[in-house]
Design a protein around this nucleic acid. Structure first.
Lengths: 183, 183
DNA sequence: TCGCGCATGTAAGTTGTTACATGATTTA
DNA sequence: TAAATCATGTAACAACTTACATGCGCGA
């Protein structure tokens, strides 16, 4: 149900095409909401049907027409209502933790490799978030409220990734400890 | 696809009923995997069909029979294979961050209340995780590997909640800052 | 010329949610 | 006597994933 509002929130900033939204979801919204392009296009269709957005077809040469989506009055209202109603926290579903829960079945070498890969991914994500913070949110005190809220969302991504990496250190320290007692 | 393996991982510890599994999912597995009882019962049926578990019907007086699920050899193998294959990280989908992204639409008072409620929930969860750590994982160095892996999964929950609360402080500090400039 | 970026979608299948359904036992 | 715990499910719907489908322009 919330993808709808994630889209409206993205469009609340600026009119975008499905393609642009897809890009935004995997960059600036990476720590906020995840959606595949198929989901996005389908949901945009529904938003159009529900008249929460308007669509402008922008002809292009040698490419499919762009379909530029714009949030309208009803969309704004729906979004405003939604952001002001409480929602539970998202469900936790993490395969990595399932693996640890059955940790005695893990092959130490393969698992170390998986952890290395995970670390790489988290570091990359953290670097990206930090670069966004540097470029767009360098002096929070002077930013307009709108930006400061978005900065907080970004901060969560940054703190979260830092925290993930701290935890990974604990995990790898533990695994090394096991090696020593075995060998 | 992973609920299946979350169930197998839970059954890998000990034989359980659907009811027990449901309980386990919202306590010890709270930071690992989320599932409703409907999903659990359905998936247990499938695991039975696939012959990855065996079922023992335990008659009871005045209550429906217990159905006790036990992981079998095939189940163990399937689980071992799964834990040793890499998986991407879980998708991020957080309505709270969507709200911040459209933060200019937030009603300050309602949002403060929602944050207070969220803080309460996170604190409660953190307390629970800490109590588990105190009771079951008090001296990590002397635990058998099996327990130490599970401790790491728990640590993620603890660090994650602490991190959430740190972030919440940032959020509330920011909101108070806005109040001051307004008033 | 090969792959990437741009730009849009459909179809089928799996997973997850919400509502419905029952009923005895224990605890406050 | 009301609520929580024990104990199992079905049915309908909504959300999400994976695979399929197309095709031009541009840079290496």
């Amino acid at each position: 149900m919330s993808l709808k509002f994630a889209l409206l929130a993205a469009l609340h900033e600026e009119p975008l095409t499905g393609y642009d939204l897809n890009h935004k979801f995997r960059t600036r919204l990476a720590n906020v909401w995840n959606a595949s392009h198929q989901q996005i296009y389908r949901e945009l269709g529904k938003l159009d049907e529900e008249k929460l957005v308007s669509v402008e077809d922008v002809p292009q040469k040698g490419r499919p027409d762009k379909r530029l989506y714009r949030i309208n009055k009803s969309g704004q209202e729906a979004l405003a209502t939604w952001v002001n109603t409480p929602h539970g926290r998202p469900p936790v579903r993490d395969p990595l933790l399932v693996k640890l829960f059955a940790g005695d079945l893990l092959d130490p070498e393969r698992f170390s490799q998986e952890l290395a890969e995970i670390r790489r991914g988290w570091l990359e994500q953290l670097d990206y978030f930090r670069s966004v913070e540097r470029e767009h949110f360098s002096n929070p005190a002077e930013m307009p409220p709108h930006f400061r809220f978005q900065h907080l969302a970004l901060r969560r991504g940054i703190l979260g990734m830092e925290n993930n990496l701290t935890w990974l250190d604990e995990v790898e320290a533990m695994l090394e400890g096991l090696d020593c007692t075995d060998g």
